[in-house]
Design a protein around this nucleic acid. Structure first.
Length: 460
RNA sequence: GGCGCGGUGGCAGAGUGGUUAUGCAGCGGACUGCAACUCCGUGUACGCCGGUUCGAUUCCGACCCGCGCCUCCA
């Protein structure tokens, strides 16, 4: 039985999908006005692992992750760049896909964009007005009336009165209550807009997710996830909109990833302390970044630092070393390691524990190597690749992993030729020449590994 | 101020009412022409103070400290 921590109940619960064997999951994706940063990568990778694991356990997962392609920040950025907002969003969407692909994140089943769901959004707003949960204000905006929904605050555990008492709630004359939020925003002159019964405008941020998730997954679905800062107000507002519009319970399990921090502060756009995925990938192999993210639990905070990335790289190398030179066996049945892996992953996707199982496999594999037990080596290699694959790791050919990133000015053939020259020098006991060749290669970023079987090489 | 989360060995990071993951670094060893790499072995821990218990790092309470949300942010 898989257990998942539910933000709604604040505890781990047995996971029972609405339809046995099928999981319907929605995750809030990117607002595409800039490149993805590490915080986005965390959510992307976390829910990728969750999807992979659920599928590994036999569930048919329908994973929907939206793209917010219209909002204030997009319009402002497009204006600053002197480009149309669609040029900007298309560029950022393809950049996002590139980043995801490099991190080994599988594509969701559906990737709805807000601008493709304007009709559904308008229909839902219309429904909310009819049921008395929303109202058109004098300024052309349409607001959700927070007072009309008794359940408001049940996800974030906030009381409406506390929210109203807070000084940071926007006081807007057009709103009946300061906590009300926009469903439809009237267009300013010259702004991109769509026609609606309440005048030209565009959707508010929260309504798009309600409209798209309902359209793609139905009124009630299993899992809704996202980043830690979406819990309030975004997800709280989604619940209010959806439950008021459909009259049904919205989501069974709410999942939130932990924040990425830099120097003890949350990595965020507003603090400006964020690292984009692409700039991190300039310095570290993508799989190392993924390993770093997966090595701690998805709900915990993690600190981004050079040291942590370097350590992740060293640890990943250890696992690939175990696989080096082995052809994994085929159709290897489940082992005790698989069971251990399932046990920790069943417990709210404990990827840190899962990685420890991976190290257990690699330790056993090394033992088999010492024993010279070829069958056992091939069996364990298969298990390691299989379980690693559930985390989206260890799917590369080990040689490719070790040799990636070698400077272009040195071809594999040249390296092999130098290795051979060194081997000859060593045979003639000309160690000065042998060491000269070794040093020369090291200077160029190539490290030689001597072993009984001969010499292999990898990037430095 | 309101709500929520957390404090584990030098570092990263799981977990558990008693047998104390895993990795990195350190140390010892094997291997090596010498090294590096690799492999094997190995020590150190549960913020503070009370309570419950035969026994608490694990449960309960207080305290200290850190963090997140309450405003756009994954």
């Amino acid at each position: 039985m898989i257990r998942i921590y539910n933000t709604l109940s604040q505890q781990k619960e047995d996971f029972r999908p609405i339809q046995p064997g099928k999981v319907r999951m929605y995750v809030c994706g990117m607002t595409v006005y800039d490149y993805c940063h590490l915080g986005h990568a965390r959510v992307l990778v976390a829910f990728d692992v969750i999807t992979r694991y659920l599928r590994h356990r036999g569930y048919d997962v329908h994973y929907v992750r939206n793209i917010t392609d219209i909002d204030d920040k997009i319009l402002r950025r497009a204006d600053e760049n002197g480009e149309t907002f669609t040029d900007l969003t298309e560029r950022m969407i393809s950049a996002m896909h590139e980043d995801e692909h490099r991190l080994g994140v599988l594509a969701p089943n559906e990737e709805p964009k807000a601008t493709d769901f304007i009709d559904e959004i308008i229909a839902m707003i219309h429904q909310l007005i009819q049921k008395g949960h929303a109202y058109a204000a004098d300024n052309g905006d349409v607001y959700f009336s927070v007072d009309s929904f008794d359940g408001y605050g049940k996800l974030s555990k906030k009381k409406l009165e506390d929210l109203l008492a807070g000084a940071r709630v926007d006081v807007d004359q057009a709103k009946k209550s300061p906590a009300d939020f926009a469903l439809w925003k009237a267009a300013k002159p010259g702004e991109v807009s769509w026609q609606s019964p309440w005048g030209d405008g565009r959707p508010g941020w929260h309504i798009e997710c309600s409209a798209m998730s309902t359209k793609c997954l139905g009124d009630t679905f299993d899992i809704h996830g996202g980043g830690p800062d979406l819990l309030f107000p975004h997800h709280e507002n989604e619940i209010a909109q959806s439950e008021c519009a459909t009259g049904h319970h919205f989501v069974n399990t709410w999942m939130h990833a932990g924040a990425i921090r830099v120097n003890k502060e949350k990595m965020s756009k507003s603090l400006g302390n964020f690292f984009t995925i692409r700039e991190i990938l300039d310095s570290y192999p993508p799989e190392v970044v993924r390993y770093f993210l997966v090595s701690s639990h998805y709900r915990s905070q993690v600190d981004y630092s050079e040291d942590n990335l370097i350590e992740a790289g060293q640890t990943l190398e250890r696992l690939y070393h175990a696989l080096r030179g082995v052809i994994p066996g085929k159709d290897v049945p489940e082992t005790d390691f698989d069971h251990q892996f399932h046990e920790v992953m069943d417990d709210d996707f404990n990827t840190a524990g899962a990685i420890s199982v991976l190290h257990g496999v690699s330790g056993a594999l090394n033992q088999a190597r010492r024993d010279g037990d070829e069958d056992r080596i091939r069996e364990l290699a298969a298990v390691l690749v299989r379980l690693g694959g559930v985390l989206g790791l260890l799917q590369q050919d080990p040689e490719a992993f070790f040799k990636a990133g070698v400077p272009d000015d040195l071809s594999a053939e040249q390296i092999e030729a130098m290795i051979e020259a060194r081997a000859n020098a060593r045979k003639e006991k000309n160690f000065a020449e042998a060491d000269r060749i070794r040093d020369e290669l090291q200077e160029k970023g190539v490290i030689l590994d001597d072993s009984r079987e001969g010499t292999s090489w990898r990037r430095g």
